[in-house]
Design a protein around this nucleic acid. Structure first.
Lengths: 213, 213
DNA sequence: TAGATTGTTAATCGATTAACAATC
DNA sequence: TAGATTGTTAATCGATTAACAATC
């Protein structure tokens, strides 16, 4: 089994997006590491190294077979196997994520939504009947779901997380701007809403007026 | 002026979140780099180095003054100065972001929303009357707004981006899973929705059954 | 003073890039 | 064959961590 670092995974995603997005009139075409590197501003050596990490080999003087690269990347990134996730916190953001249709392309599906607000429980949000937060644990036990999307207010995020973890969740996509504490076997992926803002704001300050050039 | 790298900015955000979140009964208290490092799983030397980068000095045997650290970080991260942003693409995600009340804490404000769907134009979404996409350029010229939140479908993202850039936008928070091409003076910050999913999915595969331990 | 913590230099680590022989 | 590109090793670069004298 291939072990990938986060930076590699990030680049593999970008390669896939580039290659799968190209016009597919002739999908057996070859593409060189230089072409890919050029398009994505990545060193060609890095591209070859990354491909090597997922056992993709090219041909001297010709490059890599586009179809093959795409297929392998889909396999490694597991886009064709659907993973189910529960969503906790059926507010605006939760609703937006539930309504988002693009997840299917990446093999990701939200199968249930929970909220502790009794006014929301029973209501339909983006095609899902919101369930009571109390029913999270039985649901997870029954359906063996391992991923969760967390869109709760920050003050309850840790409590909810503890429940999710003890019910078997091992991957959390955290949209609340709150640092979660979890056991080592659980992966938290922060959406980093506030960090995105900070970076933009910092950029503004860094180059006042630069946009006028 | 201090120049910070992205990794530093990320850590500074985490320090701020930790320190501002602590109970503020005695805000003149001191905190050591070891305490911070321990709480955030960062090397204490790294903490001191990062503080040094924003001209924060501590006292031997005592540590850093919490109040002072918070104040300096707020200043560096510019949380007390509000930056305005326009939002383009008033769909579910756009609406969720418009409805999000937490932005104010970071000195960020969405001042207008645009969409090219005539059925949405004129409607109210989360307190904003959606404006026609055609009016983006005049709006930006008039209000001198430099940041944009992009929540459009992927197929129009680049076109919209080109318009935004030529109208003076120099920072784009990109929620569409699409690689944007921009001039060097423009910063694109990708929300990386699809990457978050990939990382979670990959984690699941990496350790099948690990959550059962 | 004694002792804990800072500030800073040196060492380590890992990731990126350069170089080039092997390949097609 | 000739020439462009791969595969891979070595060199570089930057970021992280260790060590320790200076400080309070």
């Amino acid at each position: 089994m291939v072990r990938l670092r986060r930076s590699e995974l990030t680049r593999l995603m970008r390669y896939y997006r580039l290659l799968s997005g190209l016009p597919d009139t002739d999908f057996s075409m070859f593409i060189t590491s230089a072409q890919i590197g050029n398009a994505l501003d990545v060193d060609p050596t890095q591209v070859r190294r990354d491909f090597k990490a997922v056992n993709l080999t090219g041909k001297g003087r010709i490059g890599f077979r586009r179809r093959e690269v795409c297929d392998v990347l889909r396999l490694v990134l597991r886009f064709d196997e659907t993973d189910d996730a529960v969503l906790v916190g059926a507010g605006h953001l939760g609703a937006a994520l539930m309504a988002y249709t693009g997840f299917a392309d990446f093999g990701f599906r939200i199968v249930a939504a929970f909220d502790n607000d009794q006014r929301k429980v029973g209501r339909e949000v983006a095609g899902h009947i919101v369930k009571s937060a109390r029913s999270i644990t039985p649901f997870l036990k029954k359906h063996d779901t391992k991923l969760a999307v967390l869109t709760t207010p920050g003050d309850v995020s840790q409590t909810v997380t503890d429940h999710l973890v003890s019910a078997g969740i091992c991957g959390i996509w955290n949209f609340s701007s709150c640092q979660l504490e979890v056991p080592k076997h659980v992966l938290v992926r922060d959406a980093r809403i506030s960090l995105g803002i900070s970076e933009l704001k910092y950029h503004l300050m860094k180059k006042p007026g630069a946009w006028l050039e």
